[in-house]
């Protein structure tokens, strides 16, 4: 059975949830081989084995972490040419899409990004599902040339545990001159909020113009549900919340089990980031706000009255 390369998405060895999802998807297409780049392998190893990685290609070179995308793309290109995998799966994050883009050009492959489902076509090929035009359409696509390179969004498959051999093979890698053309000169970590990551969260509570800049009630409600906090473009442009929390066309596209929009009117810019959510709830003073066209449940009212009452009720239900 052909190998399927999965680029491990991790921070110092702690795997992001997408890694177990990608390994699960890889098993539909062939035999999963994890590609682990950077430090912290011992931390990652049990996860890779638990989700079915038969092989692990491991490269640990300073160049792979000191420089940006190019070293990872060069390493993957080297592996693709040697292994001839059935597909390469990469997390559809900003960085993952860049690695995928360089890789696709290097090896002459078709690239699909933002896949929300990946299945075998039964003939050794791959069929993917994406949304288009602000979530207004669902599209099915195939790669018609080269080894399919697919960037897959978080929450695209429920991770399934299957133990794998996770046999390690060290890979030699020497970066090209181009790989060293852009380097990280400084890095300021963000303050940790303790909340889940926006794109991975099962529940997202977002605030917009209606918060007037006060996100405390939105955050308290989110925390009662164990949710991530998002913001509309209006709230971000006003400087009320960081851009990394923006949900919408020019921010994050989220697809949680539950999305709660607080004081957000629901312009196309915002809908593009959230309308594929499974259940949608909105609170807005304006009963004509377009967000109410999308909701499963809506409350016409002041979020500063509704949210605290709802937070209390959620807390009470926990006993």
């Amino acid at each position: 059975m052909a190998e399927v390369l999965v680029l491990v998405d991790h921070v110092d060895g702690t795997c992001r949830k997408t890694t177990s999802e990608l390994l699960t998807i890889a098993r539909r297409l062939g035999e999963p081989s994890a590609v682990f780049v950077g430090a912290g392998y011992d931390t990652a190893a049990p996860t890779l084995a638990a989700f079915g990685a038969e092989k692990v290609y491991r490269a640990d070179s300073d160049a792979l972490t000191a420089y940006l995308v190019v070293p990872q793309a060069e390493l993957l290109a080297q592996l693709v040419e040697r292994v001839q995998p059935a597909a390469v799966l990469i997390a559809s994050s900003a960085e993952g899409k860049e690695v995928a883009a360089r890789l696709a050009v290097k090896v002459g492959s078709g690239l699909i990004t933002d896949a929300v489902d990946v299945q075998s076509d039964g003939n050794g090929g791959v069929v993917t599902t994406q949304t288009a035009f602000a979530g207004g359409y669902t599209v099915r696509a195939t790669v018609t040339k080269g080894v399919p390179v697919i960037a897959v969004k978080p929450n695209s498959a429920p991770p399934e545990q299957v133990s794998g051999a996770a046999a390690v093979e060290a890979v030699d890698y020497t970066p090209s001159a181009l790989a060293q053309g852009a380097r990280i000169a400084a890095s300021t970590p963000r303050a940790r909020t303790g909340r889940p990551e926006l794109t991975e969260a099962a529940i997202v509570v977002s605030g917009g113009r209606g918060t007037g800049g006060d996100f405390s009630k939105v955050e308290a409600f989110a925390d009662s549900l164990g949710a991530a906090v998002g913001a509309s473009r209006a709230a971000v442009d006003a400087g009320w919340y960081p851009h990394t929390s923006q949900v919408g066309q020019t921010g994050k596209q989220v697809s949680p089990q539950l999305y709660v929009a607080c004081g957000i009117s629901g312009a196309i810019q915002h809908r593009a980031g959230m309308q594929t959510s499974k259940t949608i709830v909105a609170i807005n003073k304006d009963d004509e706000a377009p967000i109410f066209e999308l909701v499963d449940f809506g409350v016409v009212g002041d979020l500063f009255a509704v949210l605290p009452a709802a937070t209390d009720a959620v807390q009470a239900s926990k006993g």
Partner: peptide
């Protein structure tokens, strides 16, 4: 290098329940 095999418009969402807050909006939510 890639081909769109099919496309379909997202079905309109079913009409949801919308309530007006009369002091009980939070509890109803």
């Amino acid at each position: 290098w890639t081909a769109v095999q099919s496309f379909e418009a997202r079905p309109p969402r079913a009409v949801g329940t919308i309530v007006k807050d009369e002091g009980d909006g939070g509890a109803k939510l």
